[in-house]
């Protein structure tokens, strides 16, 4: 079974040379730590930077340089700044190659819910609805089950939706799963996790074909 860093490490393998990548808040942010350093990748933050670098060293924090999570960041050589309309223009226009974000629920048809729990304080969707409605390559990083042990991979989302039919791949603490027209398809098992454990933790339709390899990190 993977921890949050393990999920990020596995997703990092989906980041290819030449990709512009948008990372959501939470586990997705950790992906940047595991991207191979022999490939060229630029991270986009939707508040208006391409070529985002690591957090600054103490004393070099700049109020005019933050990421979409409002954390202080740095800009790498070759970085650029732009306004919010252009930022979502590059997202909506499919110029960003890969979007990685967290979720509360994903349905077997690719629907995603990650912004609102009825009855609880709603903070807003931020850029999530724009990202999921526009990107063609969306990977969800999340735990396979919620704190109550219930599956987060469902036949149908129960929470208010963020987007419909948009998720292409899911990486959890248990498995790598592709969203196909027929439902969830199991691609890889996390180290030490059996297929029957993944089946038991998945409420939606899970297609298991042949031998399922253990994921390599």
């Amino acid at each position: 079974m993977l921890d949050k860093n393990g999920i990020a490490q596995r997703i990092a393998k989906e980041v290819k040379d030449g990709f512009y990548v948008n990372l959501g808040i939470g586990i997705p942010t950790l992906v940047a730590n595991f991207v191979r350093d022999d490939i060229e990748v630029e991270f986009q933050s939707e508040n208006g930077i391409l070529g985002m670098g690591p957090f600054p060293i103490e004393g070099e924090e700049d109020a005019d340089l933050i990421n979409a999570g409002k954390q202080t960041i740095t800009a790498l050589p070759g970085a650029s700044f732009f306004d919010s309309a252009l930022s979502f223009g590059m997202i909506r226009g499919k110029h960003v190659d890969l979007t990685i974000l967290g979720a509360m629920e994903v349905a077997e048809n690719g629907d995603i819910a990650n912004w609102k729990i009825p009855g609880k304080m709603v903070k807003g969707m931020g850029g999530a609805m724009d990202l999921v409605a526009s990107a063609e390559n969306i990977i969800v990083a999340m735990m396979h089950t919620n704190k109550a042990g219930q599956s987060k991979l469902l036949k149908k989302c129960t929470l208010p939706l963020t987007g419909v039919g948009c998720v292409t791949k899911i990486v959890t603490n248990l498995a790598v799963i592709e969203v196909t027209e027929e439902g969830f398809k199991l691609l890889e098992r996390a180290p030490g996790v059996r297929v029957d454990e993944i089946i038991a933790a998945t409420e939606g339709k899970l297609i298991v074909e042949g031998e399922i390899p253990e994921m390599r990190l």
């Binding site: 939707e46 919010s84 930022s87 979502f88 969707m125 999530a128």
Partner: peptide, 8 residues
């Protein structure tokens, strides 16, 4: 509450 890109 509206999507950020829609706001822009």
């Amino acid at each position: 509450l509206i999507p950020q890109g829609t706001l822009a």
